Simulated scan of single mutants.
Amino acid sequence: MDDQSLAKLPFNLKIIPINDTGFPIGIPFIAMFNPENFTIHEDIDWLANCPPGAQGANLKYKGTKPRTFTLEFTIDGTGVNTNGVKIPVTAQVALFRAATTGVRGALHKPAFLLVQYGLFICTCALNSSNVTYSLFDFTGLPIRAKISASFTEHTVPTLSDILGMLSSPDLTHYKTVKEGELLPVLTNEIYNNQLYYLQVAKVNKLKNFRKLQAGTKLKFPPIDSNNGSSKTQTS
């Protein structure tokens, strides 16, 4: 592989098999070429309540489904990107399958995956993959192919616990107000209950909590869920 390709390699698409706790357990697959297409799909479940004889519906939030995403990238066996060294396409496909679909003896299932491309990092599971061969040598062996793979986001329990701790109402949080944000909405994000917004306004000595100024840094103290009072001093 030439120096230019080696320099770019750390930024290439990586698919790393991990166990249930997020620890790498196998050889990662590193794409020779970065994705040609990268699609992220998100679904929100709304429960539509439409009274008989009425038009339209009152939507109630039910939940947010895990993200799904699809990657399409090319693998090549002509040596065009490896300084003339021809890595068989069949070998590259085998490495991809070993990382994504191979059943792990200790897990008795395919591994979860950590997919990283640029700033996108996601723990996930493979849903499906397609390999389309598009160029062959005189013996009929493929020398170029395109892989299209779809994944579903999966939160590793250990990571979920950490995120839960970071959003715990038993910890003090600080948040910088953005344009148009409302105090009850921000309070609900922190405590999962917007009714505490008056306590938050008192702690931050807000004169007009109905119109927050963008750039203001707000303190969200621990809340005693038994009586709804702040556990910290308001001074």
Rank of each mutant, 00 (worst) to 15 (best):
D2H: 14
D3E: 13
S5M: 10
L6F: 13
L9Q: 08
K14T: 15
N19P: 04
G22N: 12
G26Q: 04
I27V: 12
F29T: 13
I30N: 01
A31N: 06
F33T: 09
N34D: 13
P35F: 07
P35S: 09
E36K: 11
N37R: 10
F38D: 07
T39C: 04
H41E: 15
E42L: 09
D43V: 12
A48W: 12
P52A: 15
P52I: 13
P52H: 15
A54H: 13
A54E: 13
A54N: 14
A54K: 14
G56S: 05
A57I: 08
N58I: 09
L59M: 15
L59N: 13
Y61M: 14
Y61I: 07
K62I: 13
G63E: 08
T64A: 14
P66T: 04
P66R: 11
P66Q: 10
P66K: 11
F69S: 08
T70D: 08
T70C: 03
F73T: 03
G77H: 08
T78S: 13
V80Y: 11
V80W: 15
N81I: 07
N83R: 10
N83T: 06
V89L: 07
V93Q: 13
F96K: 07
T100Y: 12
G102D: 15
G105L: 09
G105P: 06
H108L: 11
K109H: 10
A111Q: 07
A111V: 09
L113V: 06
L114D: 15
L114I: 10
V115H: 12
V115T: 12
Q116G: 03
G118P: 09
S129I: 12
S129N: 12
T132N: 07
D137P: 07
F138D: 08
T139W: 09
G140M: 12
G140D: 03
L141R: 15
P142F: 01
E153R: 11
H154D: 09
T155S: 14
D161Q: 15
L163R: 08
M165C: 10
M165S: 10
M165D: 07
L166K: 02
L166C: 00
L166S: 00
S167C: 05
P169G: 03
Y174V: 05
Y174R: 03
V177Y: 01
K178N: 04
G180S: 04
G180V: 01
L186E: 01
Y191W: 00
N192K: 07
L195F: 08
L195P: 06
L198F: 05
A201V: 02
A201Q: 00
N208W: 04
K211G: 06
L212E: 05
A214R: 05
T216H: 05
K217G: 02
K217L: 11
L218H: 01
L218N: 03
N226V: 07
N227K: 06
N227R: 01
S229I: 13
S229D: 14
S235V: 12
